[in-house]
Amino acid sequence: MTDETCQGQEWQGWREATERALYGPGGFYLRPEGPAGHFRTSVHASPLFAGAVARLLAEVAEELGTDEVDLVDVGAGRGELLTSVLAAVGSSLTVRAVAVERAARPDGLDPRVEWTDRVPRGVRGLLFANEWLDNVPVDVAEADAGGTVRYVEVAPDGTERLGAPVTGPDADWLDRWWPLREPGARAEIGRPRDEAWAAAVASLAAGRAVAVDYAHVRAARPPFGTLTGFRDGREVPPVPDGSCDVTSHVALDACGDSGAPGAELVTQREALGRLGVSGARPPLSLASTDPAGYVRALASAGEAAELTARGGLGDFLWLSCRVRPWDGGPVARDGRGY
């Protein structure tokens, strides 16, 4: 291994290397098994999550004064959330369901679900992005021994080295959102995620955009970043060779600043509580009057507790932006989107 190449590949910044590893030929997210084959999200944890999204969609439809509404799932995996929401909504709404995903459309997916690799424009309804932004590739920066903030470069086997100093818009982003003051301090440069989120919000003609992710805010950034990998349900070292997920927590407060005015940031525990998901146990008296109902309610309470648990899924953050038709929509920022 030399400074020029590693296993026949040139050194790259983490953003470029992650893009290739996740979405390039043979990329991790293009495999047939999809994300569910490697880790469990709130969507897979319980149908209560889809039920909550269905109630949120109904709220948005009521706000818009219509029973015909769009539901766009960005980073849709294999369409699991859309399938469950359509079942939960039933005939109460007419839903145009759109899955935005780079992988090919899976066999057997509900024919009502449109499949595309781009966020559609003019959405009137709900745009929902569950654990999408953490997989928008970003560069990593580290402060060297002299305090200069440099890009971290990586080889295909995960070996790292420090590269050029961070300058321009990336440096401006770090100064505002994640300053690196001490030698060895690291950060993921979230500017591409801000731009992706702003572009997604700008696709709305009217309605609401919601991003759900494991995240942090400026007052509590992790001192050494959060870059990691996942494979087969286990956390593994981040190696950008397509063998594992490469992910990092999202600076979701920065994303919120880049979207529509008045963005709200709350924990999943609070957001799901507003939508009727509670981990409260059913009354014991139900066990004698309706034993089967008690068992079902107890199981539901257990699933709700997992979705809202402190120290777990309940600590995810929900970023919500409203776009009203009379506002003319948010101003689009530069950025490729998804």
Rank of each mutant, 00 (worst) to 15 (best):
M1G: 12
C6W: 15
A21C: 07
A21V: 04
A36I: 00
S42A: 15
V43G: 14
L48E: 15
A50P: 08
R55H: 02
L57V: 02
E59Q: 12
E59A: 14
A61L: 07
E62T: 08
G65T: 04
G65Y: 13
D67E: 15
E68Y: 11
L71Y: 08
A76G: 09
R78F: 00
E80W: 11
L81K: 00
L82S: 05
V85A: 00
G90T: 02
V98E: 10
A104G: 06
P106S: 08
G108K: 00
D110I: 01
E114M: 13
G122C: 05
R124M: 09
L127G: 07
V136T: 01
P137T: 00
P137F: 07
V138Y: 02
G146M: 10
G147C: 06
T148H: 09
T148W: 12
V149F: 12
E153A: 03
P165L: 07
G168N: 06
P169K: 01
P169W: 03
D170R: 01
D172C: 04
D172P: 14
L180H: 03
E182P: 11
D194W: 06
A198M: 09
L204W: 07
V210Q: 09
A211L: 12
V212W: 04
Y214D: 12
V217C: 04
T226W: 03
T226F: 03
G229Q: 13
R231C: 09
D232G: 14
E235Y: 06
V236C: 07
P238T: 01
C244F: 02
T247V: 06
T247M: 13
A254C: 05
D257L: 12
D257K: 01
S258D: 15
G262S: 14
E264G: 14
R269K: 12
R274S: 10
R274L: 05
R281Y: 13
P283C: 09
P291C: 03
A292I: 03
Y294C: 11
A304H: 03
R324T: 01
R324N: 06
D327E: 15
A332L: 15
R333F: 14
D334F: 12
R336A: 07
Y338T: 02
